[in-house]
Design a protein around this nucleic acid. Structure first.
Length: 449
DNA sequence: TGACGTCAAGATCCG
DNA sequence: CGGATCTTGACGTCA
């Protein structure tokens, strides 16, 4: 259960099957988890549904909740398969979960599935969290707003409780608005916090935001009420406090607010998108930038929640580039998902990566993701679109019907003669992959990015 | 009063 | 009718 790679002792993560000795090792080992929020990219069977208020009847709500719990279960299984042990559950998992619009006793109705999902989370050693949106505000001067916020926190607490997760599975909250007087607004937050049910307080952690409450404010409040503080690096970059310290120092300062019962310290990590508004997240985590951040905080026994558009893809990338359990199979698995996309965008890089992964005794994770990042920035030229599409078509050649062959030819001709992109062709190929149940293809990012 | 952010539902348009 | 594209919804604060 432990082995040596180079001169570095590597500890396996705890699983259901491991012995007591290893569980002991797990307890004392420094383990950092990296995770992602709410949704996944390119994982079949994990789509979430919602409904608008006027359609939120009992039957519709049941349907949506059943579908969402099934999606959550599939997501958890995907996370386990991909060694992702930190995950934020979407607040929208139960539509109108804190509103009188939804009067279903969903925690009873769906008890078997909630219990089953919770057991999988627990057995895998996964940590989950929830994060009510920017509209859940405890310090509003408007009583009704506060009352709804309290209801919303009750809902989040109830959901994590229905999964039978412990208090280290957190609910992350911002402080709220200023309303023209910050001191009074902070005091209102503290007063309202004190009134909360104990099971909510056990889970609540406070996060710095990008406009009103910087990390000094949050640390100050967190210490007063005895709640843990989550440091968000991008919010901090946009809205820093007057004391100028490196991120690692703020993270260290936050560490003191985390008690044993809270589990490992958590932080949020994201990067500024170069061409969007301030605070907008990148499409994918730029690995070099992440690794230099990571090196500065390494050894801190910290969980890192990534906030990024490509979600699980960046989580896998960052995990593969930092894991102690380095295995070529992890890179090969990720390569199998990127390969046709990269073949389409940059065939030269496609061949470079194939060469790179040939040496099975190496673990060139960072080089691999450098090449992936480079390739994904490229625009697919028409000839390469055709080439990649034909590669994918190759999976169906043998059993495709005459009509499907005809349709394929038509898509090919259309792609050759028009300026049109390959979206229609890809949809056609995805439908074939579904029809002929080509599992390998169904996981390909070629269809989803 | 609209921007802010976020995602899918809902609405509408097109062939 | 199916697919593609545009608009709406649900939330609270602040300019």
């Amino acid at each position: 259960m432990k082995y040596n790679r180079g001169n570095k002792l590597v500890l396996w993560r705890r699983t259901e099957n491991e012995c007591c000795f290893c569980k002991f090792l797990f307890e004392v080992a420094v383990v950092m988890s990296i995770g992602y929020a709410c949704l996944s990219v390119g994982v079949p069977g994990t789509d979430f549904k919602s409904c608008v208020m006027k359609n939120a009847g009992e039957e519709r709500l049941r349907d949506v909740i059943a579908q969402n719990l099934s999606a959550l279960e599939n997501l958890i299984e995907y996370n386990i398969r991909n060694h992702i042990y930190l995950f934020r559950i979407s607040s929208d998992i139960i539509p109108f979960g804190s509103s009188p619009v939804n009067s279903l006793a969903w925690w009873d109705l769906f008890e078997p599935s909630l219990t089953r999902i919770g057991a999988r989370i627990h057995a895998a050693g996964m940590r989950v969290s929830m994060h009510p949106g920017q509209y859940t505000i405890l310090n509003s001067p408007t009583q009704e707003v506060v009352a709804r916020a309290v209801e919303d926190l009750r809902y989040h607490t109830r959901f994590l409780g229905a999964l039978h997760t412990g208090p280290e599975n957190k609910i992350i909250l911002h402080i709220g608005g200023i309303y023209g007087n910050k001191d009074e607004a902070v005091q209102r937050f503290i007063d309202e916090y004190q009134k909360l049910d104990d099971d909510i307080k056990l889970r609540l952690v406070l996060e710095n935001d990008e406009r009103s409450y910087h990390i000094c404010d949050v640390l100050d409040i967190a210490r007063q009420i005895g709640a843990p503080a989550v440091f968000d690096n991008l919010h901090h970059a946009i809205h820093p406090c007057s004391v100028d310290l490196p991120d690692s120092d703020w993270i260290h300062a936050c560490a003191g607010t985390w008690k044993d019962q809270d589990g490992r310290q958590k932080i949020h990590y994201s990067q500024q998108s170069p061409d969007k508004r301030r605070g907008a997240h990148t499409d994918s985590i730029r690995i070099d930038e992440f690794l230099s951040f990571y090196q500065n905080i390494h050894g801190g026994n910290i969980d890192i929640m990534l906030e990024v558009k490509d979600k699980n893809l960046s989580a896998v990338k960052c995990i593969n580039c930092t894991t102690g359990a380095a295995r070529m199979a992890y890179l090969e698995l990720d390569w199998s998902r990127y390969k046709y996309l990269i073949l389409e965008k940059a065939p030269g890089v496609y061949h470079q990566i194939r060469e790179l992964l040939k040496d099975r005794d190496s673990y060139p994770a960072v080089e691999f993701y450098h090449l992936v990042e480079f390739a994904l920035k490229e625009e697919a030229a028409k000839g390469n679109q055709i080439n990649a599409a034909l590669h994918v078509w190759g999976y169906f050649k043998k059993f495709a019907s005459e009509n499907e062959k005809k349709l394929c030819m038509r898509h090919l001709q259309k792609l050759e003669t028009q300026k049109d992109d390959s979206a229609g062709f890809k949809r056609f190929l995805l439908r074939l992959a579904q029809k002929y149940d080509q599992k390998y293809l169904l996981d390909s990012l070629y269809f989803y990015l």
